[in-house]
């Protein structure tokens, strides 16, 4: 089983449009939307939800106003500015302390040290995840709650679910829409994948962000290939991106021209290759052929989102 992660560093480079087209061309893949912060793939693939589950991660504290004596110890100990003196009065004190659940990091310090046992510490539901059916095959996706955290854990969970599904249905490929940035959710999207396809725009910031996410990918031991989107916008930066890629062992597999058909397809809720036979659609078809070649050569996705170690550092103290 092979797992392709489409990634960009910078957001808005056309990653999701390419994933939707790949899903349409692949037909047999399990599709995962790991961009849980700004999940958009469902807008094009229009999944029919078949399984829906709550996603729980960590816990959040809550002060029970009836028990609070307003001693202020929790506010003093909280490192996350999550505790405020504006809760309701309770007969004993005119005002109590209150926890801002959005700011609460879930460390449990207030709960552990409250002398009056006035704080509850309960598991927090952060969102929902889904297994769905689409016209292009099964899809695993999620919706995070407002201002919810822990998207790294959710990403790992979605990928595991997709791997189990692929194994059960004997599907050979997992197609993953990665998230932007270089932090927790991206690390969770990439770890143990067979191949990363970078979709980059030829801009100063696209270039800058690509260099950082490419470093991360190399560090995680995931091989990468590059496609430049809207390549005709700035030929000079395009060539520069491709040169950097080659020097770092990243194969250059395609250039996609700027084409208004991409936005038109999105508005029609279709993948570009479904809605158009214009220049962008043609380039994406070629890109898919190239990507498959590299995917065949790559290592299988390791069970449970793991990768065999190339070299590793350990970080611990005694």
């Amino acid at each position: 089983m092979k797992e392709l992660v489409v990634i960009s560093g910078k957001g808005g480079t056309g990653k999701t449009s390419i994933v939707a087209s790949f899903a349409s061309l692949a037909k047999e893949a399990v599709i995962v939307d790991c961009d849980v912060d700004a999940a958009d793939l469902h807008l094009v693939l229009q999944p029919q939800i078949q399984r829906r589950e709550d996603f729980t991660a960590g816990s959040k504290a809550r002060i029970m106003p009836g028990h609070c004596t307003a001693c202020g110890k929790c506010e003093e100990l909280c490192r996350f500015d999550a505790i405020y003196y504006d809760g309701p009065g309770n007969g004993k004190v005119p005002k109590t302390f209150r926890i801002d659940t959005i700011a609460c990091e879930g460390c449990g310090v207030c709960f552990d040290f409250c002398d009056d046992k006035a704080i509850e510490f309960e598991p927090a539901v952060c969102g929902q995840w889904f297994v769905s059916q689409t016209r292009c095959g099964p899809m695993v996706h999620a919706r995070l709650g407002v201002a919810a955290e822990n998207s790294g854990k959710l990403v790992t969970h979605l990928r595991r679910t997709a791997q189990e599904l692929a194994a059960r249905q004997k599907r050979e490929m997992i197609l993953c829409d990665g998230s932007p940035g270089i932090g927790c959710p991206v690390i969770a999207s990439l770890t143990g994948a067979s191949l990363a396809l970078f979709v980059v725009e030829p801009t100063a910031s696209g270039r800058h962000d690509f260099l950082r996410v490419a470093q991360l990918t190399m560090r995680l031991g995931v091989p990468g290939i590059l496609a430049v989107n809207k390549a005709d916008l700035n030929e000079e930066v395009t060539s520069d991106l491709e040169e950097f890629a080659r020097q770092n062992g990243i194969a250059v597999v395609g250039r996609i021209p700027y084409d208004p058909a991409v936005t038109q397809a999105q508005i029609a809720r279709k993948a570009v290759v479904e809605a158009s036979s214009g220049p962008a659609a043609e380039a994406i078809r070629d890109l898919w052929t190239q990507t498959q070649t590299y995917l065949h050569r790559s290592a299988p996705a390791a069970a449970g989102g793991f990768v065999q170690l190339a070299g590793q550092q350990q970080e611990s103290t005694t």
């Binding site: 957001g11 808005g12 912060d37 700004a38 959005i102 700011a103 995070l144 407002v146 201002a147 919810a148 955290e149 998207s151 998230s179 932007p180 940035g181 932090g183 959710p185």
Partner: peptide
Amino acid sequence: CPPGTSCPVIESVR
């Protein structure tokens, strides 16, 4: 601010 709606954005806009 960073893109998205999760912890880094919240920290930025607060």
